[in-house]
Design a protein around this nucleic acid. Sequence first.
RNA 1: GGCCGAAUAGCCCAAUGGUAGAGGCAGGGGUCUUAAACACCCUAUAGUGUGGGUUCGAGUCCCACUUCGGCCA
Length: 868
Amino acid sequence: MSRYEPSQIEADWQKTWDEAGVFTARRDAAKPKYYVLEMFPYPSGRIHMGHVRNYTMGDVVARYKSSCGFSVLHPMGWDAFGMPAENAAMEKGGHPQDWTYGNIKVMKDQMKPLGLSIDWSREVATCHPGYYGQQQAMFIDMMEKGLVYRKAAMVNWDPVDMTVLANEQVIDGKGWRSGAAVERRELTQWFFKISDMAEDLLEALDGLKDWPEKVRLMQANWIGKSRGLQFAFETVGAPEGFDKLEVYTTRPDTLMGASFAGISPDHPMAKALAGDPAVEAFLALCRQGGTTAEALETAEKIGFDTGIRVKHPLDPSIELPVWIANFILMDYGTGAIFGCPAHDQRDFEFATKYSLPITPVFVAEGAEDAALTEAFTPMKSEKVRYIRGISGEKLMTGDEGVAEAIALAESRGFGQGVTKFRLRDWGVSRQRYWGCPIPVVHCPTCGVVPERKENLPVELPYDVSFDNPGNPLERHPTWRDCTCPKCGAAAKRETDTMDTFVDSSWYYARFTAPRATTPTVAEDAAYWMNVDQYIGGIEHAILHLLYSRFFARAMNETGHLPTAAREPFNALFTQGMVTHEIYMTEQPLRRDGTSKRDGGQTYSGLRKVYHLPEDVDRREDGVYLKADGRKVEVIPSAKMSKSKKNVVDPMNIIAEFGADTARWFVMSDSPPERDVEWTASGAEAAHKHLSRVWNLCSRIGEMPADHQGKEDAALLKATAKAIDEVTRGIETFAFNKAIASLYAFTNTLAKADASTPVMKEAIRTLAQLMSPMVPHIAESIWSYQGGAGLCAQAPWPKADPALLIDDTVTLPIQINGKRRAEIVVPKDMPASEIEKLALADEDVVKFLAGQPVKKIIVVPGRIINVVA
RNA sequence: GGCCGAAUAGCCCAAUGGUAGAGGCAGGGGUCUUAAACACCCUAUAGUGUGGGUUCGAGUCCCACUUCGGCCA
């Protein structure tokens, strides 16, 4: 066996696997199936270490399950629509489609050398008409089932570029290109009725036993079920048709602390008042700023007193002013609230600003009624003393207070208890080009009509220009022109495209039949679904996973997925990030020659300069720049990012050490759910280890066939132990522990004096156990040591249970909890015998020094504790 | 502010309530070498963030606190 040359063997084995079609997924009724999926990448341009870690984890599982006799589906695709492609087109010219397909080619070429066991014949790209056409078909099916609707909603409007902006394009309230202050504007948009399924999406979380608790919790909080009271204020002096004002509150127990009523600027009553120039001016002011919750939250709270009054439901003699307030959202609850400044921080700030009364309803247990400097907002589960409760003075929890208030409102008939969800319907309209066109037609006579399925896909036109802002689909000379699918008259296409989260909400289902002329094929979906193991980043814990869960349900209701697949991911694993140290120097800001007003001094600030890991040298006393030897400040590890330059290009690592080294490193040390720090020394260590295994394989290969060793039994035991530990490590996603066992087994094997056949058997087993992590070197060792067929297709080794149990055990003896002695006993010696032996032990007798033994605890196979 | 998670040797990390060390990095010593690098062999080091509690026995369970990270406001 020659030297370890990864570049040589890796390319060769990849070719061999390819030609043998080892990773092609096949429906096989005789085998159990296993579907392992990693979150598919956005084709940004190049792969990074995070991809390597994510896909290696999936690959370990896929290869392991395949060895265990499963028919494995392990596909890969591209989340290929989205704004970066359009931004690139606007900034550098070119076309989003060319940019995207170019990136896909580069990234695929970079992924191939990793040796992943991916069935590339199932590759999909969401920007391909073959994919998004089926998505359009499902959209139409969902329209028929009432899961899709249109309504007016707010968008970020750039008044200079005259275009809609995505939330990410609003930076500090300004348009990212024009720099103009962003306004909120109402536009009719498409929505998925995810709120209809809120209850189901929440309750089904309990069944997701193999999901991280953390993710289930985040989803539950996002769905945000709450019990509250909905009631109507009687209004005084309101415009025609507004004699009632419906409000919703989760704290009806604080009703006696109400000091005003507030309505959203988008509330119908606010709009009805807009004839008044003062109101109109205020509403215009509210429209400034973006639509994100964060933007609304951080914006200064402003209000306008309408002069309208409402009567307090519990005491009609009290009249409260009605204010229009910018912090009230139209799409939560009824768009109207009652303000209780004493127990809501936003209301408190608002009341302070506009000098409205602040009346506490309850105080902390044992506290007195005193003026507040901020809102008092204890947990609802906490007991408080009500001083102005609806039933007078009382000590009880907030939850009890709320229940009491709802009961009272219902018995008096002025309101009713209502369950509401924080989860709002999913707005999917995007006024952009590079997305899946919404397949509907606007007909002057028939209105909004879905496109006929035989006319799908509604393809994106290629000849568009990005010279002007806005949606190129609107400006295209002919694309919008069509005929009404219903009446045949001239009509116009919808120009909105779908949110890219739609594309990624069903790709897992498409992989089961990626070339079908329907979204899915019943038999394939029935065989392959669900995804048995889904792996991806925690950053998708909420939106992507929630939307996917919704979509699986919607696809079930439209007949595209079986009922068993309504919850599409059986097990979820969220992996940590790959991090790296940051290297920084500080340099004086360049002088620009101009002097400052204050005395002609030039600005003497420092500017931070970051350096790539390959541009620095690590010496004993620190880190220095290779170029000029200056000392570099080392900032603790953080997620690899281009702006901090703490990135290591996987391609460089593969070129230097090979893919197996990169794979081995990202799986070792840190538990997979935690971040792993990439270090140059760690990567070298991984490579050295693989070389050692290679050399060990050579040595064993050159052993004389008739060599007789003395440690055959011990090596057989060690082999069984390694099989057991590695198997359990992989099964439980403890890849770091599996790798630690492999290090230990390698060390044992290297030192073992065993007979040639036993040594050969051991190294073949080592190769197999390593193969999920480092498949190429494993394959080389397997073939060199005469393994049958391909290592990738060999059945997973089984440990002989008899070899896992030792004949004798060493039991430590504790006296009063401190370890004092140990004895060696046969493994099945009864406890009573062990007790006798322990008490007779020389050291024990010495330590007891004649004290009487009060109690003796024998934990079989573990420990003996003598209490004196 | 609320919720969740983490804290073990210089560093990354192991340890079903039962001998704190499996493994890796760095460090020290040695073999090989004219010498060094490589390779190989051997190896020191912590009592588990702090303070309480439960237990025969706590890194592990409970309570409080500190620091760091994540999510939500």
